[in-house]
Nucleic acid binder design. Sequence first.
DNA 1: CCTTGACCTTCCCATCATGGGAAGGACTAA
DNA 2: TTAGTCCTTCCCATGATGGGAAGGTCAAGG
Lengths: 146, 146
Amino acid sequence: MNIGEASKASGVSTKMIRYYEQIKLISPAHRTESSYRTYTDNDVHTLQFIRRARDLGFSVEQMKALLALWRDRSRASADVKAIALEHIAELERKAAAIAAMTKTLKHLASHCHGDERPDCPIIEGFAETLGEGPGVPSKFGLANVV
Amino acid sequence: MNIGEASKASGVSTKMIRYYEQIKLISPAHRTESSYRTYTDNDVHTLQFIRRARDLGFSVEQMKALLALWRDRSRASADVKAIALEHIAELERKAAAIAAMTKTLKHLASHCHGDERPDCPIIEGFAETLGEGPGVPSKFGLANVV
DNA sequence: CCTTGACCTTCCCATCATGGGAAGGACTAA
DNA sequence: TTAGTCCTTCCCATGATGGGAAGGTCAAGG
């Protein structure tokens, strides 16, 4: 089948299928004489696998590892579980960061009248020095999580 | 003061200060004769404002709006609150998406022995057709949230 | 047989916020 | 004066995704 049909069958856009091929997440599709990509049911199966992993938030790198483990029938289930647990930890870290932001914002918002008057604890909270000193010089601040 | 000092004082990297100037989030810094950027305490205050808003997950666009409201002493607190509430809603949407992924993954992982044996419900869960049909053709799948 | 429309191809660009690094100029302390 | 640290601009990379242009291919219907 053509790339469009494979896309519909797998739920992965044609753009992404070509991209996944380019970055070698999947092997190059067979081509017709006129260089159209063709896909087998097996290829679609792989694409579905990718879509499900992606929908669970796995990165391309993690999916590469998962695909390799999927194909390796003799691998230990512990190998798969390790990737999953690591990803769960990552998700929980992000959830915690989001929860912290939400909590702070809700706190500020709850003290804001939200009417026509100008005084607003939210914006004052951003403006006031809260004794934090120099900010976290981290490569990955809270913002990257959102 | 120079950009390096302003960076340390505000917690915003020099790279980002220049970037924020470029995209007009902040106004162009004054320059010395040798075209070094110089910053006043007031400029640093603005940068701190930006850093705090950023740490709470606001986008550059939202920060533009917040800065304008900050400077406008006659604006209604409702205007600020609206932005904050919208952002809270966005954060909660992301938190929900992450929670859904985490739940699914934990469920799969809990049924995986995690030993040397090859059978693994996690990877089988990705591989099996679960009757989902064509995937969500959305521009923004779950994955974008992470 | 030819046209039309839907598909396919590759290539380049944009997103968002951030950092890396190179090449070269400016300043400061010894 | 020299060494070292700062500054400047410019270009490139990230990750996963989409948009769109320019042009080739294919199938159905007149």
